[in-house]
């Protein structure tokens, strides 16, 4: 479970995230939906402890990101927009490196690799150097790194960015599979159909503020619009006019 309370992040005079509050329950897939520059990645970076909040706090399964960032990181799996693979290492070497950094035992790593690689089709290119892979292959490898330690909280930042249709579909299906688990998942995206398809609840974020938050049905009701794109445009415009 994630509790975000009055979270704010300033970079000099620029306010990237302006006092947002939300909660994500275990077993829920939650979307941060917003245009580029809305503050999604900054929020995710605070969730991942890379950025320290200017004010406010985040509790991840009761652990504060500001007070115990190293402990929070043990709870987390992150798939960032940049795949973050070491090009001169093979896919398996990359996965093993990050697993060892998480203090996993060799037999545990072996076990998890055998669980994760086949459904993602990684076996076919596990021995190849990451630098020689296609974007889709890299994204699958990065996904394997994000979940190798079976984390209770998983954060996806634009997971299908730059992927071909087939690879994007495979990644989305993988995220969708978490619906039936007790994991807490946050998906940051600017693609409406991804949020609509995958998420239990959606937070529309714009200019560092949450414009609206709720299930798809709740957002439809709040905006009086049917499709998510129309809902998004209406709610974002309302917030823009209000500010």
């Amino acid at each position: 479970m994630i509790q975000v309370t009055d979270l704010r992040k300033e970079f000099g005079d620029f306010v990237a995230v302006d006092g947002i509050t939300f909660e994500v329950k275990s077993g829920e897939i939650f979307s941060l939906l917003g245009p580029n520059g809305a503050g999604k990645t900054t929020t995710l970076r605070m969730l991942t402890t890379i950025f320290k909040p200017t004010s406010g706090d985040i509790a991840m399964n009761g652990i504060s990101v500001t007070r115990e960032p190293e402990k929070v990181r043990t709870q987390l799996g992150v798939l960032a927009e940049a795949t973050g693979l070491y090009g001169r290492l093979t896919v398996e070497e990359n996965v093993r490196y990050f697993a060892r950094l998480r203090d996993m035992q060799e037999d545990q790593i072996k076990q998890r690799i055998s669980e994760i690689f086949p459904p993602l089709g990684i076996d076919e290119f596990a021995e190849k150097r990451a630098g020689n892979l296609s974007k889709g292959m890299k994204q699958k490898a990065a996904l394997a790194i994000a979940i190798i330690h079976n984390p209770p909280v998983i954060l996806f930042d634009e997971p299908t960015s730059g992927l071909d249709v087939m690879s994007a579909r495979q990644v989305l299906e993988f995220i969708e599979s978490y619906k039936k688990t007790d994991k807490t998942v946050i998906l940051s995206t600017h693609l409406m159909h991804e949020a609509e398809r995958l998420c239990d609840r959606i937070a529309i974020i714009n200019k560092g503020k949450i414009a609206a938050i709720g299930t798809f049905a709740e957002l439809q009701k709040q905006s009086g619009q049917k499709g998510l794109e129309e809902i998004f445009v209406k709610l974002v415009q309302e917030v823009s006019h209000a500010s």
Binding site: T48, T49, R73, V78, A82, G84, Y86, L101
Partner: peptide, 14 residues
């Protein structure tokens, strides 16, 4: 530049 630093920073070690 390659974006690997971010992956490293979300790993638990200090």
């Amino acid at each position: 530049e390659r974006g690997t630093l971010e992956s490293l920073l979300v790993a638990p070690p200090s």
